[in-house]
Design a protein around this nucleic acid. Structure first.
Lengths: 231, 231
DNA sequence: CGCTTGAACATTGAATGCAATTTTATTACG
DNA sequence: CGTAATAAAATTGCATTCAATGTTCAAGCG
């Protein structure tokens, strides 16, 4: 046997490629806001930081471009993409359409376990003061209510819209002032689901999404104005 | 007038990269059905055919993977992805939700020019016996009705869903028997829009999409069964 | 002083080469 | 004859290298 055993550390499920790792890494950084919109992504710099050559970097960037997270301009490089205010509003409108639809489908199918899970998530969100995981907990709560609808593609589509829109709101304004309101709205939504009032539940969810978006966007506008003035 | 093409994107007269050419080429081939679902895409073969090295091929494949047109498995290669029957049905359901929404938004804003354009498209579809361009004409007709809603992201999303679903229906069954029915439904839709009956127009559009899907899918099922038996 | 020019530099785009992995072919054995 | 073991071939993943393009900046000219 060829004795090439160079102390290969437990390979396990290390079936991941460099390109995949790089893509996942960059995706996380962008969606978390660590790489702000407009930031230039230099291939060589990334390659050095991540310890790979430029080839997997480029492959990952092409993936992210198709996902809409970066813009690639020929011979100029990659830039973290941004969404205009109009784009953001439209994303929330799409969410409102699709989420109310999923809720309508899933409401008759919700079990006590689903409700228990949703309530547990609400409790966790209320307790956690760090705001760190609020975004993902919030998504988990919403998706828990839609899961019985059994529309995996729709759910995945909404998830991407949610994450991609959310990153544009810097942490300071994501929850400011809205935390209690959000909690009350979530509880009301759950109550309406339990009561089986489909129409009111849908209307409430639509308002929850659209009004939340409007609030966030108005704060974002104010912040951008302030930034523009300051500079 | 606004009788130009629907492409609102920037004129892509910029330097085109090999990767971009390859991606566009493969995308066309896949969406047109020339590369059938399940087909293996060999990097070296594609590179030879297109006269480039494997690098741009790989970058293009990563783009197409993010677009959902191919599946990439580590060290095994790329295959043209397929949609299950359930997936197809779900795609049409999403279309029904979003298209009825856009129609509701745009109906009050439709002008005589919009109607004229839609009717011209219908006429072209009726005349053209080749079925060659029917798919894109059909899309142009639908999108013409939604354009005034001014929801570019939604429109683009629907377009992708439409094209990506349509390719799974082989040419022989795309129109069989349904051509006249489609034409009548399109004319009725236009009539309802002109009359300003939002609710009936939305309901009709929803039925148009969902029933069309059901018809196509049942034919597809039959065909797959027959194929399975034959082999 | 402002503007153009162009050359050095920086960055991206693509080809080549090689290692890692999978697939196919071949052989050994029951 | 069928099946497991194994070598050979094919294929992918990635690093390196070279080519093409964009950017910067200083010198030359009005």
């Amino acid at each position: 046997m060829s004795e090439t055993t160079v102390s290969k550390r437990a390979p396990k499920l290390l079936r991941q490629t460099s390109t995949g790792r790089v893509a996942a890494m960059l995706r996380d950084q962008i969606l978390s806001g660590a790489l702000p919109e407009g930031m230039q992504l230099r291939q060589e710099k990334l390659a050095a930081e991540l310890g790979v050559s430029r080839v997997p970097i480029r492959e990952a960037l092409h993936q992210l471009e198709a996902e809409g997270l970066v813009r690639l301009e020929t011979h100029k490089g990659a830039v973290v993409s941004g969404l205009s205010i109009d784009d953001l509003e439209e994303v929330y409108e799409i969410r409102a359409r699709l989420e109310t639809w999923l809720l309508e489908l899933s409401m008759p199918l919700l079990t006590q376990q689903d409700y228990a899970r949703a309530e547990a998530l609400l409790a966790t969100m209320a307790e956690d003061q760090q705001d760190e995981h609020w975004s993902s907990l919030n998504w988990n709560f919403h998706s828990a209510l839609y899961a019985p609808a059994n529309r995996p593609q729709t759910l995945e589509l909404i998830r991407k819209l949610y994450l991609n829109a959310y990153r544009h709101f810097p942490l300071p304004i994501r929850l400011t002032g809205g935390r209690d309101r959000m909690h009350r709205e979530h509880e009301l939504l759950l109550k309406l689901c339990r009561e089986g009032d489909v129409q009111r539940a849908k209307d409430h969810l639509e308002q929850h999404i659209l009004m939340g978006a409007r609030q966030l966007i108005s704060r974002l506008k104010a912040m951008r104005r302030r930034d523009a003035d300051h500079s």
